[in-house]
């Protein structure tokens, strides 16, 4: 188990290092940074001055290691556009993104697990077909489109919920629902498949032979085993949601990390872009590792192996 975790940790580090390099390379490929920082009306002399001031005249490899070295201690440099420390910018936007991600995940779990169980118990019946249709719909529907539809319906026409901003918990309801829909199809299908498999297993027959109640058979004996892959995938889905919040945050003007990334890409504010990509990637890698650990915690066969 310890060896397994150690190996997973090394892989995670390698993935993070790769992302680090890619994040750095991609921003350099998007044009001459000194020109875009200087702006449209700058003279050649201004550009040269900026290039020197930001250290962009140094060889790329030197710039890379300088950036990596600083990034290791949490120093992502200064934003060209916001004129603030990048780390501080991200730190101040992070709670919004995490709140949104967790809201989305909670909604997704509360919707998909009961739906998956209902579908599995009524396999082949109309309940099952309705659930499968919802899952298909959720998969096919683009998040930004669903977001706009919700805004028009609940925000503009009914006036129940605010359509943009970050002021109160109500601001998180619609974006949370939209974000949840990215995970609902996968989690529902996984719960359904897991429950169907569990319900036809020998240990469920044993549970029935023991005369246990239907609730205990379904929720204690079957769900406990069906939930193992669901929980692991949910952790990975949270990573997707945090990364995917770029679209949702821009649609709902939620001032989270995703919105920050969107703004800084537009402004060619490359220290911020690099840092956001890196932070989200590291969170994603960490969540994937967490999924493995959760799996081991939930499945006794892995724990003692």
């Amino acid at each position: 188990m310890l060896r397994f975790l150690l190996r997973r940790f090394v892989v995670a580090l390698l993935v993070a290092a790769t992302v680090l390099t890619l994040a750095f390379m991609l921003t350099r490929l998007s044009g001459d940074l000194a020109i875009s920082i200087a702006g449209a009306n700058a003279t050649q002399a201004d550009v040269e001055l900026i290039r020197k001031a930001y250290g962009l005249d140094r060889p790329v490899i030197v710039q890379f290691f300088d950036w990596v070295g600083r990034a290791m201690i949490g120093d992502f440099g200064e934003s060209y556009f916001f004129k603030a420390r990048t780390a501080a910018l991200i730190g101040e936007r992070m709670p919004v993104t995490i709140t949104l991600g967790l809201t989305g995940l909670l909604i997704a779990l509360f919707v998909s697990i009961p739906m998956g169980i209902a579908a599995a118990v009524n396999e082949g019946a109309w309940v099952d077909r309705v659930v499968q249709f919802i899952a298909l719909l959720g998969q096919a529907m683009p998040g930004f489109w669903l977001g706009l539809i919700l805004m028009i319906t609940f925000g503009l026409q009914l006036g129940w919920l605010p359509i943009s901003g970050t002021g109160s918990w109500q601001h998180y309801v619609m974006p949370g629902i939209v974000l949840a829909f990215t995970a609902i199809p996968a989690l529902t299908r996984l719960t359904r498949a897991g429950m169907i498999q569990a319900m036809s297993s020998d240990y469920i027959r044993t549970a029935r032979a023991k005369g246990l109640s239907r609730a205990s058979i379904l929720l204690k004996h079957a769900l406990r085993n069906a939930a193992i892959p669901v929980v692991a995938i949910a952790a990975v889905q949270l990573g997707f949601m945090l990364g995917g919040s770029i679209v949702i945050e821009s649609v709902f003007a939620l001032h989270g990390v995703g919105f920050l990334a969107w703004e800084s890409i537009g402004k060619n504010d490359f220290p911020v872009v690099q840092a956001v990509v890196l932070v989200l990637a590291v969170i994603y890698v960490a969540l994937t590792m967490l999924a493995d650990i959760l799996n081991a915690v939930l499945d006794p066969r892995l724990r003692t192996a």
């Binding site: 044993t206 032979a209 023991k210 005369g211 239907r214 004996h221």
Partner: peptide
């Protein structure tokens, strides 16, 4: 529901597959 009250209490059953008849999670 009534049958479940008897099963495991007054009438019990064991199976051919001991490897898979116990719940792996408990």
């Amino acid at each position: 529901r009534e049958m479940a009250r008897l099963r495991g209490d007054r009438m019990a059953m064991i199976f051919q597959e001991p490897m898979t008849s116990l719940n792996p999670a408990y």
